[in-house]
Amino acid sequence: MIDVLDYVMLFFLAATAIGIVRLRGLIAVVMLSGIYSLLAASLFVILDAPDVALTEAAVGVGAATVLMLGTVALTTREEKPVRFRPLPLVVVVVTGIVLIYGTLSLPPFGAADVPARLHVSPLYLAEGYEQTGVPNIVTAVLASYRGFDTLGEVVVIMAAGVGVIALLAGRRSGQGEKGE
């Protein structure tokens, strides 16, 4: 059952991605990228990651789409047509083949006895509730065991906010000053 859902979601994701490559109207492309994030969030639910799905739905579908729509409204709504050049396609295909070759040494999808599950995560699952009192282990790790990581994340957000303000609030100069 999970396999079928997984296939269907990945197929929809691929269809959306191809739509994003082919369309030139930027508003439609932004909408499709929101749909892509929503499909990714659904896939996270299927893959037993509800916390990640909620964050992706809020951030990827909500915040990112709003920011991109704002940028499109401030700049231009249509991508100019480009001549097809073969080099990027070749680079992408070669990179993809190399990556797929690399996955051959990975453990099978859904296996339980993989190296990544043998070190700290069983410890979190076994002792997380006693040590933190939070039954949701993702929250326990995020807020308690790795609280400093989350603090660093907040610092990154603040730095990005300061950067955006510094970029956009400066005195306007130069040509091409159109709209707000």
Binding site: L47, D48, G110, A112, I137
Partner: peptide, 11 residues
């Protein structure tokens, strides 16, 4: 992270 027959990491 996915494990076949597992559930979300909520005890």
């Amino acid at each position: 992270a996915y494990v076949a027959d597992g559930t979300a990491p909520i005890l």
